[in-house]
């Protein structure tokens, strides 16, 4: 079962004080005890086995690990798991499924906004936030590129991601 405790990420930390954490991820409630030094990225990936959130630099620059924490984008590598007690988290797994892609996912597919796919979950979270949290998002090239800055992609050269943002906005507002 998905939410069975699994401690492959931190089993050696058993001698450290563990701190209980209750957190809702993608609508599902989880309760765990974690070592204080466990990064949220590792918690999501290895304790909850939500491996869609990727880890690219662990110093906050690349944006691969971006999730939404209480509705706002955040780096899961710059957050401790103990900090999210009582919080609500959304990861890429919340955006849609293979048989029913969400609008941002669909747009990335149509516009070829991904290649290796490693940075993609971070971009999807950022773009989702940009389009959901702004009543009137700036869809000029400059506006979109500023919104995307903070996420590194080494494959696409960003151009198709910019196109995907516009396409996603269109899909979301197609009624």
């Amino acid at each position: 079962m998905l939410n069975q405790p699994d401690r492959t990420a931190t089993q050696g930390l058993a001698d450290e004080d563990r701190i209980p954490v209750s957190v809702t991820v993608n609508g599902e409630a989880y309760e765990r005890s974690v070592s204080p030094r466990l990064l949220l990225s590792d918690f999501l990936r290895h304790e909850l086995r939500l491996t869609g959130t990727h880890v690219g630099c662990e110093h906050g620059v690349c944006g691969c690990c971006t999730i939404r924490l209480n509705g706002e984008t955040a780096r899961s590598c710059l957050t401790l798991a103990v900090q999210v007690d009582g919080c609500e988290i959304h990861t890429v797994e919340s955006l849609g499924s293979k048989s029913a892609l969400g609008p941002v996912q669909q747009a990335f597919k149509e516009c070829h906004g991904l290649q290796c796919g490693y940075c993609t979950p971070g971009f999807l979270m950022v773009v989702t936030d940009y389009l959901e949290n702004n009543a009137d998002p700036d869809l000029t090239d400059a506006g979109i590129r500023t919104a995307l800055s903070g996420n590194l992609c080494r494959c696409t050269g960003y151009q198709n991601i910019v196109a995907a943002v516009r396409r996603a906005h269109k899909i979301m507002h197609a009624g």
Binding site: E58, G60, C77, Q83
Partner: peptide, 26 residues
Amino acid sequence: ILAGGQSLIPMLNYRVAQPDAVIDIN
């Protein structure tokens, strides 16, 4: 002190900061 953590946690990850205690004021 851990507030936003956006400068602190990179330092922890790099182990350039290895404090005895992290005090979370959130």
